[in-house]
């Protein structure tokens, strides 16, 4: 057993709820580890003191009439079905829209304004059609190969169907305002 496990099993050990095997492992660890021995000693003293705290007792005069008071109160409540005004009902926490909406808008702006969209480049790779001369809309299907660092081309790994909205001529692919990936499928060698 390790120190972290000792911490985990400590409550069960002190309550006597640990299995025989785990107790043996636990105590073997304690015999070898001074830090855990100290931890167990402190925790045992804490728990013993907590168990020994005196029970609050308002006196027999309070206890003697309590059942009757409660019973009468319960019957009255049942008859009138009225809850006390001071009765605290647990409130559901409202979703923090005031914080969430500006945060979502900021995040959206941040991602839209990213100059270097690496994900887009990785998805579209070198086969991305040139946008230097065309404005308007373009769409098509392409299969992209992966290549290793040494230049060796390996199996095609995905297929992309795309629609490009070319906002202006002369923009590099990474500067295109919108690229909608229609479909992305894993290649199974049949592409």
């Amino acid at each position: 057993m390790k120190c972290r496990q000792v911490q985990f099993y400590l409550t069960d050990y002190l309550s006597g709820n640990l299995s025989l095997n785990d107790t043996r492992d636990f105590e073997e660890h304690l015999a070898a580890c001074a830090t855990c021995r100290l931890l167990v000693q402190e925790e045992r003293k804490l728990v013993t003191t907590l168990r020994g705290l005196p029970t609050p007792d308002p006196g027999e005069s309070y206890w003697s009439g309590l059942e009757q008071t409660i019973l009468e109160k319960a019957r009255t409540r049942a008859a009138s079905n009225v809850y006390p005004a001071a009765s605290p009902q647990r409130k559901r926490r409202e979703f923090p829209w005031r914080l969430a909406i500006p945060l979502a808008a900021s995040l959206a702006l941040f991602f839209l304004s990213l100059e270097d969209n690496r994900y887009l480049e990785r998805m579209l790779g070198t086969g991305f059609p040139s946008a230097t001369s065309n404005a308007g809309e373009d769409s098509g299907r392409a299969t992209y190969n992966q290549s290793t660092r040494s230049g060796e081309i390996i199996e095609p790994d995905f297929q992309v169907e795309y629609t490009l909205l070319l906002s202006a001529p002369g923009l590099a692919p990474r500067n295109l305002l919108m690229v909608e990936i229609i479909n992305q499928t894993e290649s199974e060698g049949s592409l």
């Binding site: 409660i70 409540r77 006390p84």
Partner: peptide, 17 residues
């Protein structure tokens, strides 16, 4: 004591309900 009494009574009244 006042709060403890309130909790004690209210707990059993709610149990009854």
């Amino acid at each position: 004591h006042a709060d403890a009494d309130e909790v004690t009574q209210e707990t059993f009244v709610r149990l009854y309900e």
